[in-house]
Amino acid sequence: MSTDMVRSIEPVIPALRRYARALLRDRSAADDLVQDCLERAVSRWHQRRNEDDVRPWIFAILHNLAMTRLRRASQRPVHVPLDDVGGTPLALGAPQEDRLRYRDLLAGLSKLSEDQRTVLLLVTVEELSYADAARVLGVPIGTVMSRLSRARERLFRLMSADPAAESRPTLRSVK
């Protein structure tokens, strides 16, 4: 492995891990995905098109691998032995306001469509340009912009919604 390759790939690894964790919502599966992505990037280093910025190319590899895994996972049920569950997933989160906002954000992200969530994560969290995000996803820039706009709007509505307001009866003034 050349030092040029290492210098190009190494700074991208933390961002790849963040994106993989956001997509898969499982730390060990995300780490496995990043490992597979890095193996593929190293083995196909000669196939990259842009010599200067490898970030979009590596993110495209990770995204494609993640979508393949998610498709396969949706086709078969998940089996978790009861003994492996333990008490951790059943425990309540911390009552601090930041933790609650974080939980609401994750819940809001999970309610977005896969297309909207991936665009939102690539542009806002990973700070890819619209053009780079379009290359990663294989869609036109206009599609990235419209998906991002819809994702931001829907996430804002989900985050600012008062859950009690939906079940509360509305009163009308009768004159």
Results as ranks from 00 to 15, higher is better:
Pro77Glu: 14
Arg44Gly: 12
Arg48Leu: 07
Ala60His: 11
Arg72Ile: 03
Val139Cys: 02
Leu105Glu: 11
Asn50Gln: 13
Ala161Trp: 01
Phe156Met: 11
Gly138Gln: 09
Cys37Ser: 15
Arg103Ser: 15
Thr124Ala: 12
Thr143His: 09
Glu126Trp: 00
Leu137Lys: 00
Thr68Leu: 14
Val6Lys: 03
Lys111Cys: 12
Arg49Gly: 13
Ala164Thr: 01
Leu70Glu: 03
Met145Cys: 02
Trp57Gln: 02
Arg76Ile: 12
Val139Arg: 06
Glu153His: 08
Leu100Ser: 12
Arg157Ile: 06
Pro89Asn: 07
Arg152Ala: 00
Leu82Arg: 12
Arg72Asn: 08
Arg147Tyr: 06
Arg55Thr: 10
Arg7Ile: 07
Gly86Lys: 11
Arg72Ala: 11
Thr68Asn: 14
Arg101Tyr: 10
Pro163Ala: 09
Phe59Gln: 02
Asp98Gln: 14
Arg152Gln: 05
Arg76Thr: 14
Pro140Ser: 09
Arg152Asp: 00
Gln35Cys: 11
Leu23Trp: 02
Val6Asn: 02
Ala22Tyr: 08
Arg44Ile: 02
Lys111Leu: 12
Glu127His: 09
Asn50Phe: 08
Thr68Gln: 15
Gly86Gln: 13
Thr124Arg: 14
Ser146Lys: 09
Arg157Asp: 07
Asn50Ile: 05
Tyr102Thr: 14
Pro11Met: 04
Val42Ala: 10
Asp104Gly: 12
Lys111Thr: 15
Arg48Ser: 07
Leu155Tyr: 03
Arg18Tyr: 09
Gln116Asn: 06
Arg40Trp: 06
Asn64His: 08
Arg55Ile: 11
Asp52Phe: 13
Arg76Trp: 03
Arg99Glu: 14
Glu127Val: 07
Glu39Ala: 12
Leu112Gln: 01
Gln35Tyr: 13
Leu121Asp: 00
Phe156Val: 11
Gly87Glu: 14
Val139Gly: 02
Ser43Phe: 06
Arg18Ser: 15
Ala20Trp: 07
Thr143Phe: 06
Val119Ala: 02
Met5Ala: 07
Val85Asn: 15
Asn50Lys: 13
Thr118Asp: 11
Leu82Ala: 15
Ala66Glu: 02
Pro11Asp: 01
Glu153Leu: 03
Pro56Arg: 04
Ala164Val: 03
Phe59Met: 12
Leu65Ile: 09
Arg117Ser: 09
Leu23Lys: 04
Thr88Arg: 10
Leu33Glu: 04
Arg69Phe: 05
Pro81Gln: 04
Arg157Thr: 03
Gly138Trp: 01
Trp45Leu: 13
Leu128Ser: 00
Asp26Cys: 14
Gly108Pro: 03
Ala94Met: 10
Leu148Cys: 05
Val139Tyr: 01
Arg55Gln: 11
Arg40Asn: 13
Met145Gln: 08
Arg21Gln: 15
Leu148Ile: 03
Arg117Tyr: 04
Ala107Trp: 12
Arg168Met: 05
Ala60Cys: 11
Ile141Arg: 06
Glu166Met: 05
Arg48Pro: 05
Val174His: 12
Val78Asn: 08
Ala164Pro: 00
Asp31Lys: 13
Ala94Arg: 15
Leu62Thr: 04
Leu24Val: 10
Arg18Val: 15
Gly93Trp: 08
Gln35Ile: 05
Leu112Lys: 00
Val80Asp: 00
Glu51Phe: 10
Asp104Glu: 13
Thr124Pro: 01
